[in-house]
Design a protein around this nucleic acid. Sequence first.
DNA 1: CGGGACCTTGATTATCTTCAATGCTAGTGG
DNA 2: CCACTAGCATTGAAGATAATCAAGGTCCCG
Lengths: 243, 243
Amino acid sequence: MTNQIVGGLGDRRHTAHLEELLASYGNVGSAEIERLRSTLRASETSHRMGMVIDSRSNAVGARLVTRGWVARCAVFPDGRRQIVTLNLPGDVISDPSTGGRDMGVWALTSAGTVDADAFRKFAEEAACDGSPLGRAWRKIREAETLRLIHQVIRLGRLTAYERTAHLFLELHDRQLRTGLTQASLIHIPVTQDVLADSLGLSTVHMNRILQQMRRDGLIIYRGGTVVLPDVPGLEQAARLAPA
Amino acid sequence: MTNQIVGGLGDRRHTAHLEELLASYGNVGSAEIERLRSTLRASETSHRMGMVIDSRSNAVGARLVTRGWVARCAVFPDGRRQIVTLNLPGDVISDPSTGGRDMGVWALTSAGTVDADAFRKFAEEAACDGSPLGRAWRKIREAETLRLIHQVIRLGRLTAYERTAHLFLELHDRQLRTGLTQASLIHIPVTQDVLADSLGLSTVHMNRILQQMRRDGLIIYRGGTVVLPDVPGLEQAARLAPA
DNA sequence: CGGGACCTTGATTATCTTCAATGCTAGTGG
DNA sequence: CCACTAGCATTGAAGATAATCAAGGTCCCG
């Protein structure tokens, strides 16, 4: 098993990114924030790179990503792999067991998650009531669906170059929202393999595309940190029509 | 404008496919069915092939597809088109305006829809309460998400041949659920162009793949009706691992 | 210093697109 | 009834994009 309990009681660091995300979608009251924190005081589970949650074995509930990158991923018998969604700190994976027996949620880096079942229940009740937190929660869920739609568009009708630019812009936007980065910067703590599996490309081709983007002055890619010196150019490269 | 009001009062035919769909996900009581019908007694809007709902102009609410095929679709300035989701009779398009300015919901054939805003509200309240209808509604929404996930997998990691087989199986399953077809049969009232835009392929290639599937005895494709003489073979061709 | 993980490069091949043309069928109007 | 047309299916040839195969190269870590 790659899982291992390490945390003590959850502290603010566990929920910081989620709180920023909620705040970016509306003014959530401090009472609700306090309630939110109390539902997330579970111990953090630490995951080494590899499988986190398998829809077959441990049927777990919602989990909040607190640290590292995680992905919903389909694996074929012949070894092909498709990353369906990337999940960053602040993301709540509402139903990890969604999908068939060959889908699961994986840790792409060393990562941490906490049980978010109670929070999910709380947020969904809030959504039924229409409180500020409920509205923000709804918007987060809508944004998740929109990301899936964008993933379809990337894979269906964008070239490798366009796909890459489009994904980088999405990651940049998400990391800004959750306070994981600052302007013109993305943190990508995963190998090019992982990007390739998200964008439906081979590793070799992914590598060549990244080099081309470097030559074109759209990215400075070095050691997990990507600088975006020309965001407008990147947006143009992503054919940011259906944004 | 391609839209045009024609219907009289909604009758059972409008909701038949939705009712079958709900029934396939749980035992919904007759009282709730009655309530459902009353929320859907709006006049049917008839759509000629072309645009139905544009996220720019008419910001409409949820709509139930009663007749024909409809699609959530992204269109690029250069003419590329990606169909994100196909919507068949019985489907409720919950938020047609989701997506950027270049996304919209189109009628792929002559089609009919009715306003489903009241129904949506009713179903979501039911989901909050946890009534049978609410549970069925949740399952339908989950199935929608799962279809998006499958679309990502198709486009990301399946070959053209596999994609086509996989989509046909999905359509078969959906049409069985909604009483739109019988075993070993799919009704596909759209041109090969449309299938190509859904599967991220060119029309020419789509045509060649269909011919190959015919030669392989997996489909008998003629005039909008597709016979599936060898469903197990089709499943194998679809690499039905991550189902 | 050795090993492993990751990145990079070149050569070859496969898949798919594009371009262009032809055939087919149903509907239309003379 | 028959050309005429439009939309769709089909075919061939050429070319682009991306995959695969195989080999180095770099960097970090023990």
